[in-house]
Design a protein around this nucleic acid. Structure first.
Lengths: 170, 170
DNA sequence: CTTGGAATGTCAACAAGACTGACTTAACCT
DNA sequence: AGGTTAAGTCAGTCTTGTTGACATTCCAAG
């Protein structure tokens, strides 16, 4: 903390003296926090013998109904074969519906069924509950800092997708 | 559900109105940021045909030299079989040294060899570089908020380990 | 109209990294 | 001496990712 106080303004920009130890703490915080982040949904998924990949697919289909397989692939950052395996089980289990596109019939538009929406809700309720607790414990200024650092940590392409998702939902 | 999500004023505490959309943004930010967080080390690891599991082992052995297998297991949150596979390759490749404990000869104390320390340095340099950029872009207040939210997101046991590691390094 | 490329899907094979369960060895402790 | 603990190992399974090859369908440029 003493190091953080050593920031001197140089040429209008704020200068930060970041020790390796401070950065290391951030790295470990990310590691442990991500475990907490996924812990609650993981417990629910285990009951259905689904995995995180299924959760991610449900999450982003829910957030962008009618999305195509290609779009989902690039958001999730996995190959079509990997995504396809997950989608096949979700479609087979009646959680996701795949409809042929009207303008481009090669495309498949993915939406959640009522059953799929139910599971998605259970998963995201659990995840949001932890998030809400964390936000409340940390306070509103902490939350905006949290988001700023996370955004700055993303690759430009991820940041683009992250922003696009927010704008798509208004 | 929407009304239930609203925070009620409770004796003098800060009031936060957290919409599902705000929490969802945080969830997606964690998802995309974690990808960025692991991207740089992953590229280096691929050259050595190691994986994230090796990185995590190297990281925590470096941070707590002489740690035992049991301790490492509980920090990483994996089974001994899973950890053992990783340690076996690291020891076999001469990156990690395993020494029988002096007081308790059942224990094996793990340390990095010079070669292991080199790889750990390369990996953490890459990861720290991104972290440093993110911290500078976001600014010092953002950083403290970032850490507060992450800590609040951890399970109590993880938080305990996280704090113990920091204190162990002073 | 034909052909090339794009989007999707499928099949197969493989690897990393996690898991459980059973078992051994050695060392420790009561 | 007997029970517990630490570590290591073997075997088998699961999820989730990867490549590569190939079929189908469709759109669009020539």
């Amino acid at each position: 903390m003493a190091d953080a106080d050593r920031n001197a303004p140089i040429g209008g920009e704020t200068l930060l003296f970041l020790t390796d130890e401070q950065l290391r703490q951030g790295i470990e915080a990310m590691f442990f926090a991500y475990r907490g982040f996924t812990a609650d949904p993981d417990r629910i998924l285990a009951e259905y013998s689904y995995g995180r990949a299924h959760h991610r697919a449900l999450h982003f289909i829910n957030g962008a109904p009618g999305t195509t397989v290609n779009n989902l692939m690039s958001i999730l950052g996995v190959t079509k074969q990997s995504l396809n395996r997950v989608l096949r089980t979700l479609i087979g289990d009646g959680l996701v519906e795949s409809r042929v596109g009207r303008s481009d019939k090669r495309e498949r538009h993915l939406t959640l069924t009522e059953k799929g929406a139910e599971l998605e809700r259970a998963l995201s309720d659990a995840q949001r509950a932890r998030m809400r607790r964390a936000y409340r414990d940390a306070g509103p200024e902490a939350v905006s800092g949290f988001k700023r650092v996370l955004e700055a940590m993303m690759d430009p392409e991820m940041k683009r997708q992250y922003s696009a998702l927010r704008e798509g939902r208004g």
